[in-house]
Amino acid sequence: MNIEIKKGIFKVDNWKYESLKDMLFENQVESWLEEKRLEVEREELAYETYRVYESYNRNHWQDFFGKYDVRDIKYAQIKEFARFKMEGKSKKMKRNILHALHTFFVWCKKNEVIKEMPEFEVIKGNDAKPRKALDYTSQRTAIGLIPLEYRDVVEFAFETGVRVGELCALKVFDINPDIPGLVVRRTYSGHRIKNNTKTNENRLIPLSDKAFFIAQRNMKDKTPEQWLFINPSTQRGYMPDYISKKIWRKYTDIPLTFYEASRHSFCTQLLENGVDLKTVQLLMGHRELRSTEAYTHIAIQKLLPYVNKRGKELKNA
């Protein structure tokens, strides 16, 4: 209110009881979430993103900001929230929570709920644990641990590097035998099929001999619209969590997530084999090259023994 008075934009009607109630954070954030839910229905927003926003609001924002008038939330309040409410959280988690909160305030500004965007606390540094990757031999060992009836879907993921949501959403007609190749057209978002990809673009992936052999075996006696991979336990298409948890986590003792063992390892192996970044970006379906560049540190680590060995040889010469 004081800020509006100083700037000469104060309006009495905006500060009456009913208006004040509407301006509470808890009410405005519900309106924002409802709009996000409608975006999910129109397939403009991933369902998983909506669930994350909902979770952040329920578990982090409401207790602190709920009874605040959104117009009164400034840098001081956001700084206090970041320092105390998120104590003990990783820096990555803090950044994600604040980024989502910033998205909410952008919506408030766009809808003229607030006149100015509040400044946000900057979380510096990175304490995220680096992802690990399997080499090709370790992947073959892992395949041997998987029961025979589940091996094809796991091995196909290893051979193509597709996201697990994309893997589960593959249909028979997505396989092009003439190349041979695979067209990624859709993915799972939560428990729903989303009829586009994470980058909203279809992408064509060439299939290795092994991947094409697996595809042909699973296409047999199926119509073009059927799922490429059928879960033998349910006789329906696979769900992402089933592969990640009920197959990978249950049958292997490898301390890597399925994402790390499949997609992350696929990308790392390509870089270690000398494939250039731009080509890897296309194969992985990364929207930006910097997403691909994040994998290069693992490939470079493989070169360290050679550098150290050279140093010792020079020293002994």
Rank of each mutant, 00 (worst) to 15 (best):
E26N: 13
Q269A: 00
V12H: 14
I193T: 05
E30N: 11
I230T: 15
K129F: 01
Y136Q: 13
T141D: 14
E18H: 08
Q28M: 12
G285P: 01
I243M: 07
Y17V: 11
K250A: 06
C168E: 01
R83G: 06
E26F: 07
F64H: 11
K89R: 13
Q216I: 00
P206W: 00
R185K: 09
R290A: 12
L228R: 04
T223W: 07
P305V: 07
L98C: 04
L134A: 05
K250E: 11
R83D: 15
E39L: 09
I214W: 00
T187D: 02
T141F: 11
D221E: 13
D72W: 03
L271D: 04
S291I: 10
I73M: 09
R58H: 09
T137C: 08
D69P: 01
E34I: 07
Y50C: 04
L20S: 08
T292M: 09
R51Y: 04
N57V: 15
G285M: 03
L314D: 03
E116H: 11
E166M: 00
E43K: 10
N111Y: 06
I146V: 15
A157C: 06
E48A: 13
D221Q: 10
V40L: 09
S55H: 06
T187M: 07
K6M: 13
G165Y: 01
V275L: 08
V106I: 13
N111H: 13
E225C: 08
Y306S: 11
M1Q: 15
R37Y: 12
G190R: 04
K132S: 04
